[in-house]
Amino acid sequence: MNIDFDKTNGLVPVVIQDEQTLEVLMLGYMNREAYDKTVAENIVTFFSRTKNRLWTKGETSNNFLHVKSIALDCDNDTLLIKVKADGPTCHTGDRSCFKTSYNQNFIFELQNVINNRYDNPSEESYVNKLRKKGLNKIAQKVGEEGVETVIAALAETETDLINEASDLVFHLLVLLREKNLSLDVIAKNLESRHR
């Protein structure tokens, strides 16, 4: 990558974005050394302007930012890094340093919660109880929630429709996980069909 560090006095701004939700998590700065370390370790390292040193995000909190892709802008002086975050990105404990009013991409987080329930089953977990009943029951629940969503759309309140549609999406995510599929696969398929 031909990054123009000279144009900006040795530092380039770096936008950090969640790889799945595309939510902007934070903005930091890198010098050449921070960039090289980031590429070598696949974990984001910045140059801290206040501490005047390299700073790996997560070095004290363990909320590391794992690099999934790096893109350079058209002027060669700004980076966009898509990451998988180990936890909250902001030092305040928020998922992002930018105070959005709600998590507009919670569906991806919900998919991660379901994956976690599969990988680390818990007796109290509804996902675990449903999973134990098998694929047929999971598929049946998707069908039931689909019918309930249609009924709510035709004959019930907006709140009922929202609740039933939410149940449908949740159970569909469980079904996709049961079949080892993800929203990424569905999104790519929808994108290819759109063209």
Results as ranks from 00 to 15, higher is better:
38 T>H: 01
163 N>A: 15
143 G>E: 14
102 Y>V: 11
108 F>S: 06
111 Q>N: 10
9 N>W: 00
167 D>I: 05
111 Q>C: 03
183 L>R: 14
192 S>K: 09
124 E>T: 11
147 V>E: 10
62 N>T: 13
22 L>A: 11
5 F>Y: 05
19 E>N: 14
30 M>P: 05
127 V>P: 09
13 P>R: 01
127 V>F: 02
100 T>A: 10
116 N>E: 12
143 G>I: 14
3 I>A: 04
78 T>K: 09
40 A>W: 03
69 S>L: 03
37 K>C: 10
149 T>D: 00
164 E>W: 00
108 F>Y: 14
51 K>L: 11
113 V>H: 11
127 V>R: 02
46 F>H: 04
72 L>Q: 00
56 T>K: 13
54 L>E: 05
175 L>E: 07
122 S>P: 01
169 V>D: 00
175 L>P: 05
111 Q>H: 08
163 N>F: 04
169 V>L: 14
54 L>M: 06
172 L>S: 15
127 V>T: 09
135 L>T: 12
102 Y>D: 14
165 A>C: 07
74 C>K: 07
36 D>Y: 02
64 F>P: 03
25 L>I: 05
191 E>H: 08
6 D>F: 02
138 I>L: 01
132 K>M: 10
99 K>F: 12
145 E>S: 13
29 Y>H: 13
146 G>C: 10
98 F>L: 07
35 Y>E: 08
157 T>I: 02
170 F>Q: 08
66 H>W: 10
125 S>R: 06
92 T>H: 03
186 I>Y: 05
174 V>I: 15
34 A>Y: 10
145 E>K: 02
57 K>F: 11
49 R>F: 12
167 D>V: 06
134 G>W: 01
45 T>A: 04
157 T>G: 08
160 D>F: 00
181 L>F: 07
120 N>E: 04
177 R>Y: 06
43 I>P: 03
41 E>A: 13
56 T>C: 07
31 N>W: 13
150 V>L: 11
19 E>R: 09
103 N>A: 02
7 K>M: 06
152 A>F: 03
21 T>P: 10
3 I>Q: 00
53 R>Q: 15
27 L>K: 02
45 T>F: 06
138 I>F: 04
187 A>D: 04
67 V>M: 04
68 K>C: 03
21 T>I: 08
169 V>W: 00
48 S>Y: 07
54 L>Q: 09
178 E>W: 09
38 T>V: 05
139 A>C: 06
168 L>F: 09
16 I>C: 04
70 I>H: 00
39 V>N: 02
12 V>M: 03
191 E>W: 07
20 Q>K: 14
